[in-house]
Design a protein around this nucleic acid. Structure first.
Lengths: 211, 211, 211, 211
DNA sequence: TATGAATGAGCTTTCATTCAT
DNA sequence: TATGAATGAAAGCTCATTCAT
């Protein structure tokens, strides 16, 4: 998996790296609560600072602009996803591995519905540069599933063209996210386990159709 | 298809109904351009009026608040969808009909990508009341596909539980919309026709798995 | 009584004098209702026209500015007062005549509380020129009572200096108006008749103190 | 004298209580100048801030709405009145005490003509809630004189019914205020001392008439 | 005469950001 | 490092007035 090392730098006047990490996590947590409740634009930096537990002045010691907060939030989500999916054994190309990856991804989304919804609905408010970075991360996530699918494909379980690989990977990512941004419709009709089961089955049947 | 007759009223001080219709279409068109470009919050009412071709005062003759503009936009999209899908012959329950409905829906989205994207990213900015109305419209759209699927199901082509019917219908709606809100990823990998083909095939194989 | 003949002209594009009179009375009536309810500034010209029963365009055929409406209203009040107090017999200088004048004045106010309150609270919104005119009218009203008092004074019933005459006349005018602008306090403690009785008695005792 | 402890709270984002007091006094002073000159509605918040000596943003750190400014102004007037009249010795029921109270009240008004005029002409622009509070304060002021009169009455100097007590107290309050809102008429005919003398005399003769 | 759609100056209010302490 | 008072650009919305019909 290609590593995207050039994480955009959010500058700080504070030096203590650990403190920075700590404060930023406080900021992200506050932001999730507030952005979920009122959206990026309606939430004010004052509120974020207050919920985070410090003053507006302090907020701006760890962040240059309000947009930085959103960026930090999106970035942290991708890190979570990466960590979750990286904790796997090497991919050997079996369908069970694919199933497990899907399951982990869906479960992660279920445990972070708010954060995912925010990312989905608010990332457009990022600057062009930051948005570009975030979309790249998103593509990385797609690529991740694309790779797993490719492994399966190469081992003969599936036979998919490059285009089909991409569309299939996209398919997984989107359906997973839909559990977050369409919670209002889905959650009252099924549990996350039922959802995973249904999605996995139909998805696998779908891509195995040619055989 | 259940008719949602209680369209929320957006008040006006203008009396000429035709003029209202005309001006509001101008407003919607302007809004699509601007909301796409900068999002609901960054677009100003002044800009909307300017792009629409009249003064800020005139804008507010046809709309009470900025939110009304967004509501009008969402509402008009659903009307388009309804019109498009209502223009069909009676549903007889064949798979071809299902395919055709999916196709029409996807093509509609393709021809209104911007409007759909806006609706999906900005509808959260609606007031509770208006949001509720819009989500209901969305559920109606899902129900529409649910009905077609049910027809197929009853005629023996498919065998789906109620839950599966709902999830399958959702599936279609979401994948269709993803063509709009993930255009940045999808459009460079395939055409709308390829996308339709791929989605239709995998979807049908997916839901026919039990046989 | 000195006549103030130079009534400020409110121009019109309409020629028919009777129609003008009629429409303006409609305007004044509407204005009384609305200014009472929301004050001069919060009442809009649109509303005035609507309550008056015609369109905003028509309103502006009979009035140059919103301020004109207020001016018309104030002016009409003074005319009412004048008419009411002019309908008396010649003043002969008896205390009974004074009592009667006070009574008529107070009763008039009681029958036009809203209009008087508006005049008292909103006349400051008139242009300098119009305000000047209105205040002159007010002084005329004071002068009217001043004259009656002078008559009494000259006939030996009272002995008042010029200054006392002025202050006493003012006293009457103010107490009368207070029945309007302090209705919220007074009306629940006494009727207009009790109020007149009380005011007349204390006033007369007051100014007759020297004897 | 009944204490009205529930002073309506005007919220602030500033924490330093002393600073709040100081800035608000600046705001009130600026408001008196401007409301006097152009009235509540024609004076803009920007102007108020400018005259007060700070930016519009700062104004809104100490006040939630423009109406709050008016409320603050009214409230401060009542506090002045209360302080002035509370600094007296216990009321013993002599006429001299009554005279002194009247004198102090009139002198206070004379030293704050603008503020009183504003309060009387603009308080109608307050919200229902704030207006109610202000009118209560006004009634308290009336009650204050009512009490003094009652003392006199009980000690045998005066014999007044409850209704007469109320009307007499109102009388004083109104005449005092008239020195403010009719300055244009009164000030050129007499000094405040002459006015006090005249009012006191006629008032006392008036209410002592029955004996 | 009567109408009412169009106009735009101008108002109140918000809020991201700075900087002296 | 942390604080929070100060700032002012910018936004949404209103409404008196005009003018073509």
């Amino acid at each position: 998996m290609a590593k995207n090392k050039e994480r955009l730098q959010v500058e700080t006047s504070v030096k203590d790296a650990q403190l920075i990490e700590f404060r930023r996590q406080q900021i992200i947590n506050a932001a999730i609560v507030l952005f979920k409740e009122k959206g990026f634009h309606r939430a004010t930096t004052r509120e974020i600072a207050k919920v985070a537990g410090f003053s507006i002045g302090t907020l701006y010691e760890y962040v240059r602009t309000k947009e930085d907060v959103l960026y930090l939030l999106c970035d942290s989500i991708y890190n979570e996803v990466r960590q979750r999916l990286d904790s796997f054994p090497q991919y050997s190309g079996t369908v069970d591995e694919l199933k497990e990856a899907i399951k982990q991804y869906f479960l992660l989304i279920d445990s972070m519905t708010d954060a995912f919804t925010i990312m989905y609905q608010e990332s457009k408010s990022l600057s062009k540069e930051a948005l570009h970075y975030v979309l790249n991360k998103e593509l990385e996530m797609v690529a991740l599933f694309q790779n797993i699918l490719k492994n399966c494909s190469e081992l003969g379980v599936l036979k998919l063209s490059e285009q089909e690989l991409f569309l299939a990977a996209n398919h997984i990512v989107i359906q997973g996210q839909s559990w977050a941004f369409r919670r209002w419709a889905l959650h009252r009709h099924c549990t996350i386990d039922e959802f995973i089961e249904y999605q996995t089955n139909t998805f696998l049947c779908g891509i195995m159709r040619q055989e």
